[in-house]
């Protein structure tokens, strides 16, 4: 039991950090530009595919640097030549632009790398068990993922709090109009943030692609969960996104362990349900079956009762 709890905590932390890497960029973009980037997970996927291609030619370590840079550059281009054009048509058009972009990226990935998964593997240097606790191993690669994501958080935090551009971004997060009135090049900052956000997603793709599976469907599968983190964390709050990621990681991980269903709950109060009728299945679903859909429930409830999110500064 102790083993199970310890590893569940570790798993929550690891999954939460991966979620945070994915969503930190989106939080920045969303808070600043008001654009809910549906293609964010597609940049995550591009990161994984570029890393795979680069690691075929020169190896994993250069890919760790190069892939996020390339994707960041692509992201900046998208902002400059796509989003800025549709900006004048309003947020709905911007949102639909990113929906279309996600579509095109997926189809292009199909065209270039084929429709099956690619064999993107964990580098040999990290393919061993870092340590064994009780009977369970923790692989070195997962420790590496943790190190990368924590250091990313620290670097991001330092950039945002200690540099001039970071301060401008922070100001623009909460008061975009005011920053513009002060004479800062807000479109330039937008481009930078969008590119930067995409390269953060790509970094998550580089280290997540071989841990998960690198396939054309990976973007569509991860897309919605990223929104959940952003919404639950709250607009304009990186710390909120961080807390929300860990919270969702924990929620999903521990829900798996709970094998109670509604009928058990009712039985506890002395009520027995007659299994029958068209909705009889509701009673038999155990909490453990629902783990991965809990975040959506969480998101809907959060939006209804506290649309600011956990630590949001303002509503959208």
């Amino acid at each position: 039991m102790l083993e199970y709890i310890i590893f569940s905590l570790l798993n929550s932390l690891l999954y939460g950090m991966l979620l945070f890497m994915l969503s930190s960029g989106l939080t920045l973009i969303f808070s600043m530009m008001g654009v809910l980037n549906f293609a964010h997970a597609s940049f995550f996927m591009l990161g994984a595919y570029f890393a795979f291609q680069i690691s075929v030619y020169i190896g994993f370590w250069p890919a760790l640097i190069l892939a996020p840079l390339i994707v960041g550059f692509l992201g900046a281009l998208v902002e400059r030549y796509g989003l800025r054009t549709v900006h004048k048509y309003g947020h709905v058009a911007e949102l639909l632009f990113t929906v279309g972009l996600a579509y095109l990226i997926e189809e292009s990935v199909n065209l270039i790398w084929g429709r099956s998964s690619v064999d993107y593997r964990v580098p040999d240097a990290l393919d061993f068990a870092a340590f064994t606790l009780f009977t369970t191993d923790l692989s070195a690669y997962r420790v590496f993922m943790l190190v990368i994501s924590v250091s990313m958080f620290v670097v991001l935090f330092l950039i945002l709090t200690r540099t001039r551009i970071g301060l401008i971004i922070q100001a623009a997060l909460t008061h975009p109009d005011g920053v513009s009135a002060l004479g800062h090049n807000v479109p330039g900052v937008f481009m930078l943030v969008f590119g930067g956000g995409c390269s953060l997603a790509a970094l998550a793709g580089v280290i997540g692609g071989n841990y998960l599976v690198t396939e054309p469907a990976m973007a569509a599968q991860l897309g919605p969960i990223v929104f959940v983190v952003v919404v639950v964390g709250g607009m304009g709050s990186l710390t909120g996104a961080f807390v929300a990621s860990l919270l969702l990681g924990t929620l999903q991980t521990f829900a798996v362990g709970i094998e109670y269903s509604l009928s058990d709950l009712l039985a506890f109060f002395g009520v027995t349900m007659e299994a029958g009728g068209i909705l009889k299945d509701i009673w038999r679903i155990q909490v453990s079956h629902t783990g991965p859909i809990l975040p959506y429930l969480f998101m809907v409830l959060m939006l209804i009762f506290r649309p600011k999110g956990i630590m949001g500064k303002r509503e959208s």
Partner: peptide, 8 residues
């Protein structure tokens, strides 16, 4: 097809 992390 909803589970990303099977470690739990």
């Amino acid at each position: 097809i909803k589970v990303k992390d099977f470690s739990p």
